[in-house]
Design a protein around this nucleic acid. Structure first.
Length: 589
RNA sequence: GCCCACGUAGCUCAGUGGUAGAGCACUUCCUUGGUAAGGAAGAGGUCAUCGGUUCAAUCCCGAUCGUGGGCUCCA
């Protein structure tokens, strides 16, 4: 066995990068008029951007993939060589590869220009690559799209092909299964199937209609959120959906955020806009009277619905919409309180996220960008406060240098879902800008007026996005505490309807969410539907149950049935609801 | 916004230059059945919208609106 595969000796990034080259080679062979540009490795795969007049169609992908396999099977050695920069520019210019020539001109003059060749194909590349095309076996081309040269829409349009590559066919298959699974639990699909929400053309793109079942879940989330906020020392407020444009001039949003603000409307000669943020309102509440250092910290929280103009092409289900509700809060504190406040927010956010079944996070600390307001000293202190709070809370984090917003440093939290995907939800941002713009103050111990530090924070980000994330995380099978319907009663025949009514009444009297399926259908049919609706508990009621005054329970996740007394069942449901018990979350194999 | 694809019944989708079909859902009837689909009948569509080509357009062309995959940006 001398042709034993060697792919295990290369890391995935190298394999993917080499596969991108292999694809470019195949494309050049099949479509010689095409020009190559760049082909980087991305998460789970790679892409390569080509310049040509006509876009690739799915049949092209099949042809390209077949050619790639042929080339790989030729066992071509991949050879690196370095050449002088002018030669490289000339070479690619002569080949008509003006994009490559342009890249070379942009490369640091100290860096060597390296070429990689395999058979008839030579490409500019930093490498590294696998040593022979035989190492490239487990790949698949996935999709095409358009992209701009260097990501700028003023530049030529390029045709992009996405693909994926792995060490082995087994890994490849597993990845493709994961894609299938993600498609199955797409919140847009489940939203329709489970009757949770719709986004309707006549209402408008990016505007969500929450159906009764989706609303139920949202209401439960909100209820939990409000209760915990009161417990944690927040005051809840409500503020309007629109305000005079002058407010947004003061806040600076008309200047810096204008392109996301809906066009103004004229009301009695005054311009008003829909609010893109809640902060100016909370600041106005702060300003409604004189504040003492004794009042601080002040924490105003609101499930505030904001409207932001997003370009039509970026809208996506509930994840990117034009009207959404932030679980927003603004904290006003003295500088000495900053670290403590951040620390409390961190504890709080982890508590909330855990309740929803998220236990793994990526946390980023973003520091001062080039353009900023406030003094370097303030930034320094605030950044240290954030960092100390993270350390104190024993949260692992990465520093994102220079990635803070112009008005202050921030902490971002991404949560990992059951398919190992990360979702940006929580954010904690220090703001030196708005307190100054609105001139808010408090009276210090010594009688002087001081400017409070303001913190913006959202735990779930937006309810729409968080809900979409939950739907995908649970694949639509919400845990008992969140399920819109916790139990469905399935009488065997209409003779058992009275018993079902009685059971329903008792469950409802215990604050449980119950439905009855009294349709003239066989039990198998009712079970199938309840199963597809992902209702946690099915309650089968027939002669046996009426006679013994018990209920037969079938759980969504297991096919076994269990018979128990009604009170016992109620107790179990109540306990699971109270403890926010989360069953094993469905995972793809 | 830009590139590409798509838009047919409530849903999922066939289909044709001569004004349309299936399955599921819905309504009615039969069936009273113990753990993933019992049977029959019926109703339901300006084929996204507006214009053009044509004797004739759901089909071809254009525009608009919307959706999807990306680009870009973010919560």
């Amino acid at each position: 066995m001398n042709d034993k595969p060697q792919q295990e000796t290369f890391d995935l990034e190298t394999i993917r990068h080499s596969t991108a080259h292999l694809m470019a080679q195949a494309v050049k062979q099949l479509f010689p008029e095409t020009k190559v540009t760049i082909g980087p490795v991305i998460e789970d795969g790679f892409y390569y951007d080509f310049f040509r007049d006509t876009p690739f169609v799915p049949e092209d992908l099949e042809k390209i993939e077949a050619r790639m396999k042929e080339i790989a099977a030729q066992n071509l050695d991949i050879v690196r060589q370095e050449i002088p920069r002018p030669d490289a520019v000339k070479m690619f210019s002569d080949m008509g590869e003006n994009f490559k020539a342009e890249i070379i001109e942009g490369i640091d003059s100290a860096a060597p220009i390296s070429l990689y060749s395999q058979g008839d194909f030579t490409d500019l590349c930093r490498g590294p690559h696998v040593d022979n095309t035989r190492a490239l076996k487990s790949f698949k081309l996935l999709s095409t799209s358009a992209a701009y040269w260097r990501g700028d829409e003023r530049n030529p349009v390029l045709q992009r092909i996405y693909g994926t590559a792995w060490h082995s066919d087994k890994e490849l298959r597993s990845y493709l299964r994961r894609l299938e699974e993600a498609k199955k639990r797409d919140h847009r699909k489940l939203g329709k199937e489970l009757d949770l929400f719709t986004i309707n053309d006549e209402v408008g793109p990016g505007l969500t209609l929450w159906h009764p079942k989706g609303s139920r879940v949202r209401y439960l989330i909100e209820e939990f959120w409000r209760k915990e906020h009161y417990k944690n020392g927040y005051e809840l407020v409500f503020t309007p959906h629109a305000a005079r444009v002058d407010l947004w001039k003061t806040s600076g949003h008309m200047e810096f955020y204008r392109e996301n603000i809906f066009s103004p409307m004229d009301i009695e000669g005054q311009e008003y806009v829909m609010k893109p943020m809640n902060c100016p309102f909370h600041i106005q509440i702060y300003k409604s009277r004189l504040r003492s250092y004794r009042d601080l910290p002040i924490r105003f929280a609101e499930l505030g619905t904001v409207y932001r103009y997003e370009r039509s092409g970026v809208l996506h289900g509930l994840l990117r919409v034009r009207g959404f509700t932030q679980d927003d809060a603004h904290l006003f504190c003295r500088p000495v309180q900053l670290e403590d406040e951040i620390s409390k927010v961190l504890h709080f956010v982890l508590f909330i996220l855990r309740a929803f079944g998220f236990h793994e996070y990526k946390v980023y600390l973003s520091t001062r960008p080039d353009k900023f307001v406030g003094s370097e000293d303030d930034w320094e202190k605030a950044t240290r406060a954030l960092e100390n709070a993270l350390v104190r809370t024993q949260i692992a984090f990465e520093v994102d240098p220079g990635e803070g917003v112009f008005y202050g440093p921030k902490i971002d939290i991404k949560i990992k879902d059951s398919l190992n995907r990360f979702w940006q939800v929580s954010t904690i941002q220090v703001d030196f800008n708005l307190p100054q713009r609105f001139g808010i103050t408090y009276v210090e111990e010594n009688g002087n007026r001081e400017q409070p530090i303001m913190i913006h924070r959202a735990l779930m980000g937006s309810l729409e996005r968080f809900f979409g994330c939950l739907v995908e995380h649970y694949a639509g099978a919400f845990p008992v505490w969140l399920a819109p319907v916790q139990a469905i009663l399935l009488p065997i025949t209409d003779a058992h309807h009275p018993f079902a009514e009685a059971v329903a009444e008792k469950l409802a009297a215990n604050d449980l969410r119950v439905e009855k399926d009294l349709r003239n259908e066989k039990i198998g049919f009712k079970i199938r539907e309840a199963q597809l609706q992902k209702i946690p508990y099915m309650v089968i009621l027939g002669d046996k149950e009426v006679e013994s005054q018990t209920v037969s329970i079938r759980k969504h996740r297991s096919k076994e049935t269990r018979s128990l007394g009604l009170d016992e069942f109620i107790e179990q449901l109540r306990t699971e609801t109270r403890d926010k018990t989360i069953d094993v979350i469905d995972q793809p194999e």
